[in-house]
């Protein structure tokens, strides 16, 4: 335990001017055995820079969710390495992983984000209270004000709208000031107005507080809020875009879909081409 805390508190390595908040090296994740083996991740190497908003996109089954689960200490890769800051996750046991999730990672899910028996405030404070810590009151106020939940704190999830629930989830993810916030389709269940609120809020935490956010999404509009979009297909990183717009993302997705319909070689070529561009 102590060596982990030591590692966690150590300074992170600078990479191209920015620290790396999380990275994966040759990450593989397979399901099943023998003939039925399926590779959800087929050797992914990727870095997420600190203080950036990154989107991970890809068709269903492209491995984007699996990648996020492995990066976020929710799932164990079959092989390869995952670093959160300097901590390598693959050797850690459940206790250490729980601690990492509690202290170093924040989560926002598509649905079922809140514990229904707790109030909004209790939900926001949940990771800290599980760790037996009190939130920093100034930061708590900031988070609550930014998310606009001040007058909703004593409400239970069932008394909140979908957008409000998702903002509570965001506030919870941010309160512990984690290294990375992982968001899995955070707007998937929301109408466009609520979705926009949540996305602007995530964008804002990156800009004003230097938070690192990684978001899995289907939605080109959502992806347009990010600094960088990473495209996955068949368990591999096939492309990426910087400073994306909704149109660019949509275009890129179309090309990917077309490529998937074409030959496997085409996918490979395109991937190489795009990476060269980055």
């Amino acid at each position: 335990m102590s060596n982990i805390s030591a590692a966690v508190t150590a300074d992170r390595l600078p990479a191209e001017g920015r620290r790396v908040a999380a990275r994966a090296a040759d990450l593989r994740k397979t399901y099943g055995r023998g003939d039925t083996v399926v590779a959800a991740l087929d050797g992914v190497s990727i870095e997420f820079a600190a203080g950036r908003f990154t989107a991970v996109m890809g068709a269903s089954g492209s491995g984007k969710s699996t990648l996020m689960h492995c990066m976020a200490a929710l799932d164990k890769p079959t092989s390869g390495e995952v670093y959160l800051g300097d901590v390598e996750l693959s050797t850690l046991g459940d206790k250490e992983l729980t601690r990492i999730r509690r202290d170093k990672v924040g989560f926002v899910f598509q649905a079922f984000n809140l514990v229904p028996t707790l109030t909004a405030q209790e939900n926001i404070e949940l990771p800290l209270s599980l760790a037996g810590r009190k939130p920093d009151p100034d930061w708590f106020d900031t988070v609550v004000d930014v998310t606009g939940l001040r007058d909703r704190l004593s409400h239970r999830p069932s008394e909140l709208s979908g957008g409000q629930q998702q903002r509570v989830a965001c506030a919870r993810a941010l309160l512990s000031q984690p290294d990375v916030v992982f968001a899995d389709e955070p707007t998937g269940n929301l109408d466009s107005t609520s979705g926009a609120e949540v996305l602007s809020f995530l964008r804002d935490t990156v800009d004003s507080h230097g938070q690192t956010v990684v978001m899995v999404t289907h939605d080109p509009v959502a992806a347009a809020y990010t600094d960088r979009v990473v495209f996955l297909a068949d368990g591999l990183v096939v492309d990426e875009l910087h400073q994306p717009s909704a149109e660019l993302v949509l275009e890129q997705l179309k090309r990917l879909t077309a490529a998937a319909g074409g030959s496997a070689a085409a996918t490979g070529t395109m991937a190489t081409g795009s990476e060269a561009g980055a």
């Binding site: 206790k95 601690r99 999730r101 989560f107 899910f109 229904p116 990771p127 919870r172």
Partner: peptide, 12 residues
């Protein structure tokens, strides 16, 4: 819900 709690840091 248990999964969620575990995800946000509830230990075994």
């Amino acid at each position: 819900e248990i999964g969620l709690l575990r995800a946000v840091g509830l230990s075994r």
